[in-house]
């Protein structure tokens, strides 16, 4: 389970298919594939004919779901090699989307955050986007000092991948950045950073 009680962190309520939508777009990363596969009975023929699935195989349990997803018989199925390429494709889809389009995002929190940014940039209201967290608890973290983002952070403190400062991962999340906040842990006494702990596996 994710850490509870972080006020700024979005709540991922789980994928529920909205039967009246005119178009369903599923952005699935790694184990996020299961979020849809577990609900395939909810996808009737009408819904399937209005569905577009974008999938990225990733993580130890998140690869190899291509066939199962393809067999759902969606109107369109696309596999991406990386998060960046999936997001690029998602941008294209949303740029021409119509009223009545529903976006579903499932996967790690970092992926959900990035896909959410694409949706927000295309004028979708964050409250209308349906999300489910699946897979690793790794965090996407922005260094508050150099503003660089480090992906897949499992330890705190960790070294910023841009400016190398040892960063404490705070329980404060920005939806706009799709990232947690990282703050220099030993600023008051440089060199005194505690040993990293594996907190977000």
């Amino acid at each position: 389970m994710l850490v509870e009680g972080i006020k700024s962190r979005p709540v991922y309520r789980g994928l529920t298919i909205q039967p009246r939508a005119r178009r369903h777009i599923f952005a699935l990363e790694g184990e996020g594939a299961h979020a849809l596969l577990d609900r395939k009975t909810e996808l009737d023929e009408t819904a399937r004919s209005r569905s577009e699935i974008l999938y990225l195989g990733r993580g130890s349990q998140g690869k190899g779901h291509d066939e199962a997803l393809r067999k759902l018989g969606a109107d369109m199925f696309f596999t991406a090699p990386t998060i960046a390429t999936l997001l690029f494709r998602l941008k294209g889809t949303l740029a021409t989307a119509h009223m009545g389009t529903r976006l579903y995002i499932a996967g790690t929190e970092g992926f959900i955050g990035q896909a959410m940014i694409v949706a927000l940039d295309n004028g979708m209201d964050h409250a209308s986007i349906i999300t489910e967290h699946r897979g690793s608890l790794a965090r996407r973290v922005q260094c508050v000092h150099c503003k660089g983002i480090t992906e897949d952070v499992t330890h705190s403190p960790f070294a910023c991948s841009h400016c190398s400062l040892p960063l404490l991962v705070r329980d404060h999340y920005s939806r706009r950045l799709g990232a947690f906040q990282g703050v220099n842990v030993d600023a008051e006494e440089p060199g005194s950073a505690p040993d990293p702990e594996e907190l977000f596996l």
Binding site: I6, K7, S8, R9, Q142, V144, K147, R170, D171, H172, Y173, S174, R175, R176, L177, Q181
Partner: peptide, 17 residues
Amino acid sequence: WSLDFDIGMNFMEWHGP
């Protein structure tokens, strides 16, 4: 506190910490 980080947040979110 960082405006750059908190901009766009609602009242409960920016007071989160």
